Amino acid sequence: MTYDIPARSVGNPPAVPSPSASDPVAYVPVPPDPHAAVSIRGLVKRFGEKIAVNGLALDIPVGSFYGLVGPNGAGKTTTLNMVTGLLRPDAGTAMILGADVWDDVNRAKRVIGVMPQGDQIFDRLTGLQLLVYAGMLRGMGRAEVVSRANDLLAAFDLTDDADKMVADYSAGMTKKICLASAMIHSPRILVLDEPFESVDPVSSANLRDILAEYAATGGTVIISSHVMALVEKMCTHVAIVNAGQVCAAGTVAQVAAGEDLEDRFMQLVGGRHEAAKLSWLDGGASAVPAPDAAPAPDAPAGAEALR
């Protein structure tokens, strides 16, 4: 479904016309979709005077590979944090598989896997220890979690580094172990914030294959990314977010509307301008004095020493 949500006051959920005898243009809220993997209505979050998420509404189908894209500060990460129970919204509703997240946060967290950032993990553990720890926190038995951890280490090309402390991992390796920790309990929904950042092309291709296979079995993948080409290639659905609201959402083809997704993104969020004209930024074309050139007659004392 593609949303074209009109401008509205903060906190008002999306609405559809509901004609009546007294008011033919009355509006009623669209209820959340209980059959969606994620259904959001009227989500709001403020930080002081800043409104980070402004009445956002979105439905994410079960089994979809969903991309959430938008400029920096658009509200993508804040929205995902509210949906996954990490940040309480100021208003609105977020439902996962038909259940309100904030009615029972622990229940919601049991069915989702959230990829942590590198500074949110215990990096003094080895890669294997971190995965075992993540699985046992989910209530898994030790034998099962060790088996799954070894499978994930092999899938992410980390077997040789299983006994190395995560603090000694490269940025790309850290990204992979964080993703593996989100998958260890086989969640029904995976939420990944910039999962391919700092990951080399070969590992990125392997990760995409794993995620695509997961989605094909009925799992739902939600990623936020700034890389339009990646989203266009990988995702079945996409939502473009700007200023805390959804500008457009639906299948990639619906949102792109016959254009390149990046061009469509630029049309919807705006903000692109002509390159700044910096006269001094000329790639070295400006004349450079020869090293042995004498200082100008009116050069200040000490100028020669600074050449």
Rank of each mutant, 00 (worst) to 15 (best):
T2C: 05
T2I: 12
D4M: 05
P14D: 10
P14S: 09
P14V: 15
A15H: 10
P17R: 15
P17G: 09
D23A: 14
P24I: 14
V25T: 15
A26T: 13
P29Q: 02
A36E: 01
A37E: 03
A37T: 07
S39Y: 05
L43N: 01
L43I: 06
L43V: 03
F47H: 08
G48R: 08
K50N: 15
G55F: 05
L58I: 09
G63Q: 09
S64H: 06
V69P: 00
G73F: 08
G75A: 07
T77N: 09
T78D: 08
N81D: 13
M82Q: 09
G85D: 02
G85W: 09
L86S: 02
P89M: 07
G92S: 00
T93A: 03
M95P: 02
A99N: 14
A99K: 13
A99M: 07
A99I: 03
D100K: 04
N106S: 12
K109F: 06
V111K: 01
I112C: 02
G113D: 07
M115Y: 01
Q117Y: 09
R124H: 12
T126R: 00
G127S: 06
A134Y: 11
A134K: 09
G135Q: 06
M136A: 07
G139W: 09
G139E: 12
M140K: 04
G141E: 12
G141C: 08
A143K: 15
E144V: 14
V146Q: 14
A149W: 03
N150F: 07
D160H: 11
D161E: 07
K164W: 02
M165V: 13
M165D: 06
V166R: 00
D168R: 12
Y169V: 00
Y169K: 04
Y169M: 04
T174Q: 14
T174H: 04
I177S: 01
C178S: 11
S186C: 01
S186N: 14
P187W: 05
D193P: 02
F196G: 02
S198T: 13
D200C: 10
A205K: 12
A205I: 00
N206K: 11
L207R: 00
L207C: 11
D209C: 04
I210P: 00
A212H: 13
A212D: 10
E213H: 14
Y214H: 06
A216R: 15
T217W: 08
I222P: 05
I222D: 03
I223G: 07
S224G: 08
S225T: 15
H226N: 14
V227D: 14
L230G: 02
K233L: 05
M234K: 01
C235S: 14
A239C: 03
V241F: 05
G244Y: 05
A248F: 01
G250Q: 05
G250M: 02
T251K: 12
A257T: 04
A257Q: 10
G258V: 04
L261C: 06
F265W: 01
Q267P: 02
Q267A: 11
E274P: 05
S279Y: 04
D282I: 02
D282A: 12
D282P: 04
G283R: 08
G284H: 11
A285N: 11
S286W: 10
S286A: 15
V288S: 12
D292C: 06
P295N: 13
P295M: 13
P297K: 09
A303H: 13
L306H: 10
